[in-house]
Simulated scan of single mutants.
Amino acid sequence: LPLPIQCDSPLRGLQLQLCYDTKLIDIGAPKLTDRTKNMSLDFQKSEGSIDVLLFNFDKDFIAAGSGPVITVPVVIKSQSFESSMIKIENVILAGVNCQPVAATGIEDISVSINDLSMDYSLAQNYPNPFNAETEIQYYIPITAKVNLTIYNLLGEEIITLVDQKLQAGSHRVHWDGRDKKGFNLPTGIYLYRIQSENYTKTRKLALMK
């Protein structure tokens, strides 16, 4: 889902908080848009909210006007979901000289069933790269058997994180960078693959020791 913000002057940075009902939906890692592609993005996720920070200390700014500054992936957690709201709070806008800028045209986001994908999905792990532990989120639209396994770049199995029948909805699993024997793996690029029904998806992750 896109998050639009309107401003009358260029911005060096912005900060905001997205709040949502964790019983109904979950929000994944935000991504930059064409309007903010030259900005740096940082975020901190906690139960029911995510704090987002965009900034650039060089010559690039967010142009004045309107349009989305980030997009956020949203997945459904309740099978009875019809609609929900994502509240936008604690908005701070900083101009090119770091002066406060008034925010206009910011409204809470209404999320309806028609806005969201009801298909399988596998999110990028976070954090990535990681050292101690990383989280992998995925969504299944129906109750089904799910297998989620880590591989090296040679296609050799490292460890299976999930291998069971799960209810429809959003799920998450953590990996601590160890193989199935409990040994720490070296720094490198690894693959994680989800398989369920007729769906298969593979992504890369980076482990740094």
Rank of each mutant, 00 (worst) to 15 (best):
N147S: 14
N152I: 04
V146R: 03
G182I: 05
I136Y: 00
Q195F: 00
F55N: 08
P30T: 11
L41D: 06
I5K: 13
C98Y: 13
E89V: 13
Q195A: 02
D8T: 12
T143K: 00
Y192N: 06
G105M: 09
L166Y: 05
F61T: 06
I189S: 02
T71D: 11
S40N: 15
V111N: 03
I62M: 05
C98I: 15
Q124A: 13
F61C: 02
E156D: 13
N128V: 11
A63K: 11
Q124R: 08
A63F: 03
M208H: 03
V173Q: 00
Q137I: 02
K209G: 01
N97S: 12
I142Y: 01
Q137C: 01
Q15P: 01
R35Y: 03
L153E: 04
I70M: 12
D58W: 06
T202A: 02
E157S: 14
F130K: 01
K180Y: 10
N38T: 10
L41I: 08
S110D: 09
T143M: 00
H171W: 04
T200M: 05
D8P: 03
D119H: 06
Y126F: 12
D26T: 11
I106N: 15
K59Y: 14
P68D: 15
V69W: 07
S80D: 15
V72S: 11
S121R: 13
K201F: 02
D34P: 10
A63N: 04
K165T: 14
V146K: 04
L11H: 06
R203H: 01
I113D: 10
Y20W: 07
P30K: 10
T36G: 05
Y190D: 00
V72Q: 11
L207G: 07
L205D: 00
P68T: 13
I189H: 01
Y192W: 05
A206T: 14
L11G: 04
G65W: 10
P68F: 12
H171T: 02
N38C: 08
Y120N: 11
A168Y: 04
T36L: 01
Q17M: 05
L18C: 09
T200V: 12
L185V: 00
V111Q: 04
G95Y: 08
Y199G: 02
G169K: 04
Y199I: 05
V146G: 05
N147F: 06
S196D: 05
E157Y: 05
S121D: 13
E89C: 09
K165M: 07
L14P: 08
Y190W: 00
T104N: 09
S170Q: 07
K181D: 11
E156N: 14
V173G: 00
T200A: 03
P2N: 15
M85R: 11
V75P: 00
L148M: 01
M118V: 03
D115S: 10
Q44K: 06
G13V: 05
I92P: 03
A123L: 05
D108K: 12
A123P: 03
L41R: 11
T33P: 06
E156S: 11
E135Y: 01
N97A: 13
Q6K: 14
C19A: 03
F43R: 10
I113Y: 12
F43M: 09
S196R: 03
T33H: 12
R178N: 08
